[in-house]
Structure formats: structure tokens, C-alpha cells
């Protein structure tokens, strides 16, 4: 299982990469494996403001639907348009091509986990 050490994580299996006040968000390798083949990703409209932990979309495999929760508060500035055509990118490259949204961070995120803490969550 791939848990890159430079990223932050949530208990609900999102990952976050913080770059100059913008958070790039996706779901983890563990999450994509649990889901199986991803067939649809529903993402928010650009410009929507999210609270921390707010549900902002869904990711679907053939027989499951998982909610996506915002790891940070802020405004959605970009969504990954590629996923409409190629949702399988979430399986193939969860930390790269399979990213989901970019959020302009407002305030200080609380409760993000580092790689070790997240690994412990996955083992439970």
C-alpha cells in the first residue's frame, strides 16, 4: 500500500497536498483498492465554498458509492475534468492523474494526519 510521506491525510481516506495556500485533494491508494474499479466521480462546481469535513462529491464503483469530504475549508478553484472521461485514473494513479479538486485554503486545517498516523488508520 502506497502512503507517500510528503502528503497529509484524513480518516475518511482523502489525501491533501498543500501548495502555496492551495490544497490538491484526492483519495488514497488504500481507498481506491477498497472501492474497486471506479466508474464515476461527481465533483463540485468551481467557486463553491466548502467547510472542513463537508461532503463535496461522490466516487462510485459498480456497487458502492462513497462520499468525499473536504479535508480543508475553502473555495474550490479547480476540479479534475479528466475524471469525467477517465474515472479509472483514480485507480491507476490516485496521487497523480487521479486528483479530484483544488481548494483555496481558508483558515488553519485541523485534524489532518501524517503518513504514519494514516497508516495506523488503515490497519484498524
Amino acid at each position: 500500500m502506497n502512503i507517500p510521506s510528503e502528503l497529509k491525510y484524513t480518516k475518511s481516506h482523502e489525501w491533501v497536498r498543500l501548495e502555496d495556500g492551495v490544497a490538491v485533494v484526492g483519495i488514497t491508494d488504500y481507498a481506491q483498492k477498497e472501492l474497486g474499479d471506479v466508474v464515476y466521480v461527481e465533483l463540485p462546481e468551481v467557486g463553491r465554498t466548502l467547510a472542513e469535513d463537508e461532503a463535496f462529491g461522490t466516487v462510485e464503483s459498480v456497487k458502492t458509492v462513497s462520499e468525499l469530504y473536504a479535508p480543508v475549508a475553502g473555495k474550490v478553484v479547480e476540479v479534475n475534468a479528466l475524471l469525467a472521461e477517465k474515472p479509472e485514473a483514480v485507480n491507476a494513479d490516485p496521487y497523480g492523474e487521479g486528483w479530484m479538486v483544488k481548494i483555496e485554503v481558508e483558515g488553519e486545517p485541523t485534524g489532518l494526519l501524517d503518513a504514519d498516523a494514516y497508516a495506523a488508520v488503515c490497519e484498524d
Partner: peptide, 12 residues
Amino acid sequence: LRTREQDIRREK
């Protein structure tokens, strides 16, 4: 297209 249905998506 089963994920629309009640046994998977429940109240949604």
C-alpha cells in the same frame, strides 16, 4: 447503473 438504487444509495 446500480449505484442510483436504494440498496446502495439508501436515502439518496
